[in-house]
């Protein structure tokens, strides 16, 4: 079963600790948190990172087969990548970015080329750093099925709790 980083939105406090942890680890954040306001004073922090799609559009668009799906998740081969940026345009969630390589290069032309930046679930680590960092426990590293099960269990428990005695 493919594991991914799931978000329990009602827990997120929009502290951006996940962004910071990712940036410290890799130089640039692969998860982005913004607050969505509803106009009535309410708001929800929503982190967005790679969703580990079952049918990844980025891989469909990749001309070099640098991106692809394997049993345990999406794989990216930087050796094959040619930095064309088509995966960035294919991702429905805007979860891929091209890292812009340093400013000018001696000429009057800006060097806009770069390297693909996408969450890879921290290869070599037991838990991705964003999940380990999240102080609110909003990020969960698990597979789809058990995440859904946990959400249902949580909601069920809430219903089973005896309602407070009326004053």
């Amino acid at each position: 079963m493919t594991k991914a980083v799931y978000v329990n939105l009602s827990h997120c406090i929009a502290c951006k600790a996940c962004e910071l942890a990712c940036e410290r680890e890799y130089g640039e954040a692969r998860v982005r948190v913004e607050v969505v306001l509803n106009g009535a004073g309410g708001g929800v922090g929503v982190p967005v990172s790679c969703r580990q799609c079952e049918t990844p559009f980025c891989a469909l668009a990749c001309p070099e087969n640098a991106l692809g799906r394997e049993v345990d998740g999406l794989k990216f081969d930087s050796g094959l990548c040619s930095d064309c940026g088509l995966c960035v345009l294919a991702c429905p969630f805007g979860a891929i970015e091209l890292k812009k390589a340093g400013g000018g290069s001696g000429t009057s032309f800006l060097n806009l080329s770069g390297t693909v930046v996408r969450c890879e679930l921290c290869p070599g680590k037991e838990t991705p750093v964003c999940v380990a960092t999240c102080p609110a426990g909003a990020l969960v590293y698990t597979d789809c099925e058990s995440f859904g099960k946990n959400i249902r269990r949580g909601k069920g428990k809430k219903c089973l709790k005896p309602s407070p005695a009326p004053l």
């Binding site: 978000v7 939105l9 009602s10 982005r32 913004e34 969505v36 509803n38 708001g43 929800v44 929503v46 967005v48 960035v88 345009l89 991702c91 429905p92 969630f93 805007g94 979860a95 891929i96 970015e97």
Partner: peptide, 16 residues
């Protein structure tokens, strides 16, 4: 890409 992220956020936030 940046507006795609916003679109996703708005959808997810609506339920919460």
């Amino acid at each position: 890409p940046s507006c795609r992220r916003d679109l996703l956020r708005e959808r997810e936030a609506r339920a919460v």
